[in-house]
């Protein structure tokens, strides 16, 4: 399977998945789907910066949490409607990205230094959310249950399912557009060799800034969705390291830098997570152990992720014929 086939497969998968909850009456399936789409969208956000651009963020929780808190606070404290809150959340994600991007890329931080800076930002935001009154401190924020499309809440979970699927499809289309654009080519050049990219007239700083702004905005939309779905938020949920890990795990497992990778990875990981929770009899953290093992195996044996595996198989088949 080449990347273009992978993209098509991912889009077909989403189209086929859309009517599924109306065909199979299962609350578990709906929730599972929502979790997959949410993780895939967050992963896609990470993928644009980390996969295509090679800037490994370990703090995508900063964007996710900024989005989640922005809409929750606007709705609770300022009476803003959920839709405006949603778009404000996306904006907030871009603002946090601007700050993190300027603070790291302006000073040429790369590799593990960049990863550490992003991690630090997410932790600072977590501590702030834990102490400030406006974020509800450690108690968190609870949104009133009030189903209605104008409040972006659904009595029927299938509404959330469709919304999550829509976000996932949108993120996929954005990633596809980026991959096929000049920005995508510039990102790959910067990822592979910044000096060589400069010789091609690419300005690495400008390219990385554009990628982190897009990535931050996308990740923030997932945070806003989370608030609408669970109607509860606390500092750990919003800014905890598990969010950052989830953001990077899917694309790394699925195939970093590929458009279909984050969705494939999110699907596999959620499946493994569910299976391990069932097998471990609901022991908390069992899924994290499995994630850890999968990550080690992937990095050791499949550095290109599932997409790399598919590509290698296609090449072998091509060479054999």
């Amino acid at each position: 399977m080449n990347p273009a086939q992978g993209e098509r497969a991912a889009l077909v998968f989403l189209v086929l998945a859309a009517p599924l909850p109306w065909l199979v009456d299962s609350g578990t399936l709906v929730h599972f789907g929502i979790m997959v789409f949410q993780a895939a969208t967050l992963g896609q956000a990470w993928n644009i910066l980390g996969g295509m651009g090679g800037q490994f963020s370990f703090g995508h929780a900063a964007f996710f949490g900024a989005g989640a808190y922005t809409t929750a606070i606007l709705q609770l404290r300022f009476g803003v409607d959920a839709w405006s809150g949603f778009f404000a959340a996306i904006l907030a994600g871009a603002v946090v990205a601007l700050v993190i991007g300027l603070a790291s890329f302006r000073f040429g931080l790369r590799g593990s230094y960049f990863a550490l800076v992003t991690l630090a930002f997410a932790e600072v935001l977590r501590i702030l959310a834990n102490t400030l009154e406006i974020t509800g401190a450690g108690v968190g924020l609870l949104l009133p249950l009030a189903p209605g499309l104008e409040r972006l809440q659904f009595a029927d979970r299938r509404g959330y399912y469709l919304l999550a699927l829509f976000l996932c499809a949108a993120s996929l289309l954005v990633a596809r557009a980026v991959a096929g654009s000049r920005l995508g080519a510039r990102l790959v050049a910067v990822r592979e060799n910044e000096e060589a990219a400069s010789a091609l007239g690419v300005d690495p700083f400008a390219v990385k800034m554009r990628a982190i702004l897009l990535s931050g905005a996308m990740a923030a939309s997932v945070g806003a969705f989370y608030v609408q779905y669970f109607l509860y938020l606390d500092p750990h949920i919003a800014f905890g390291p598990q969010v950052s890990v989830e953001a990077l795990l899917g694309p790394i497992v699925g195939g970093p830098g590929t458009v279909a990778g984050p969705l494939a990875g999110a699907f596999l990981l959620q499946l493994l997570g569910e299976a391990s929770r069932a097998l471990a009899g609901g022991a908390t953290g069992a899924n994290l152990v499995v994630y850890g093992i999968v990550l080690i195996l992937i990095v050791r044996f499949l550095p290109g992720g599932l997409a790399g595996l598919a590509r290698a198989r296609a090449e072998r088949a091509g060479a054999g014929s």
């Binding site: 790959v188 050049a189 592979e192 060799n193 000096e195 060589a196 400069s198 010789a199």
Partner: peptide, 12 residues
Amino acid sequence: HVPEGRRIFANL
């Protein structure tokens, strides 16, 4: 400009 040290994208 063709940079010195060749500066190609080795993994691509």
